[in-house]
Nucleic acid binder design. Structure first.
Length: 112
RNA sequence: UGAGUCGAUCGUACGGUCGCGGGCUGCCGAAAGCAGCGUGAGGAAAGUCCGAGCAUCGCAGGGCAGGGUGCCUGUUAACGGCAGGUGGAGGCGACUUCAAGGAAAGUGAACAGAAAUACACCGCCGCGCUCAACGCGCGGUAAGGGUGGAAUGGCGAGGUAAGAGCUCACCGUUGCCCCGGCGACGGGGCAAGCCAAUUAAACCCCACCCGAUGCAAGAUUGGGUUUGCGGCUCUCUUAAAUGGGAAGGGCUGCCCGUCCGCCGUAAACCGUGAACAUCGCUUGAACUUGCAGGCGACUGCAAGUGUAGAUAGAUGACCGUACACGACAGAACUCGGCUUACAGAUCGAUCUCAUAUC
RNA sequence: GCAGAGAUGGCUGAGCGGUUUAAGGCGCACGAUUGGAAAUCGUGUGACGGCUGAUACCCGUCCGGAGGUUCAAAUCCUCUUCUCUGCG
């Protein structure tokens, strides 16, 4: 694995406090610069029953695995999908690429 | 052929590329890493409604609470489960279904109604007052009206002033006896004439059972000694310190009884890998097949199998093929049940009814 | 994961077998008071369906949902949905 999972409650609260937020139709994203690429997923019971929540996690992990090289640098990232009736792979992938794009634009404009 | 009843099983499959958890083997001194092999969610994994294992705590003793179960006999580690029976209810039937002990131990039960286990409102009948009627008074009466969920067992006949188990037949109820059955109970006979309505998922009584807490249990393993400070309610003694007593605390919830100052915090010393750690954590009342016993639940014997073990929590993405176009749904200590959710598919019956033919 | 508590009108909240329309408060409507308002006082006021010319009158259903026990259930029992709390 070339990225780490965020696991501790303290890390999550730190990111929720300090991180910047970016939105897209199906996904919210919190990010913060770090040494290594890190990823966590935040879900609640509002997203569905256990089967649905597991499926969301699998989809998001898969999409992140395939696409996280699109990010310009190393960031800690928390993924928060919006509660919906159904969760499709294509839709979530589009949303994530869109989010990554915005993160890159924000950060590069800052540097300039 | 149609309609139905009961029981059982399966619940997407196969191949390719990338990716994930655990295991084993190899490379390696070890770790990390890499490679290979093999493995990886359910019939309900769910709800957490019962019962157990397991673990910790508690257990001198006694009493009272509290909770559960409730026809019989079995089955089991155990059960409130299951099996086979009994009885009630439903269905033409196969069959289904029922928390199914006790109301003759006691208490309670709104409103309406005269009255709720009994007390006569209307009515009916008799007697007295009265010429008679109306009316009034006394008495009898539970057949009829009215009230109510429920009104002196039902119905018919006899009987009577009118009526009434007052008498009789049948049915119901209760008691006794005989026969059958381990038993629940069933069958038959005799008697009582009904005293004693209903309600116990109302209190209650009877019989039997139950220690508390749940793997976030718990173990490795956070302890031992000394000192200081603070807290804990009152009273007595003393000038005060202090000492004694109750109170308080422990002993599962309470009481008796019994034991004792207790709790928190800081420092020093001993000890210390202290957290994303390891164990508990998967071989178990295991599963499959066969044989034997039993109507059956189930039990015994033999052979075979190795069957998830995560900890922000492992099964996904893309492509191809097939069809019924995929429902409900994700292990978290482990089992036995129950309940609830569920697209569909298949099989069995020595099962039932209807119709047709032989 | 384990353990426990709850759901009553627009909001809050009592009632825990029995009379009727489910107490009370907030809110809302109308009236009194005032030059006008606030405060105060008084009266009324749940939802849905049916009936109706009608917003009146009357009838029925509803205490998260579905069954059961009982003469009678918001209340007792079972199942179910949702919400909340505690335990590292």
């Amino acid at each position: 694995m070339d990225y780490l999972r965020i696991k501790k409650n303290a890390e999550f609260s730190k990111l929720f406090k300090k991180g910047k937020r970016v939105f897209s139709p199906a996904l919210s994203l919190i990010y913060y610069p770090s040494r290594q690429a890190e990823m966590g997923i935040a879900l609640s019971k509002k997203h569905g029953k256990a089967v649905t929540r597991n499926r969301i996690k699998r989809l998001l992990r898969e999409i992140y695995r395939k696409n996280h090289h699109l990010l310009g640098g190393n960031y800690s990232v928390i993924l928060m999908p919006r509660p919906a009736e159904e969760y499709g792979y294509g839709e979530l992938e589009k949303s994530m690429i869109c989010c990554f794009d915005r993160v890159n634009r924000c950060e590069s404009s800052k540097k300039v």
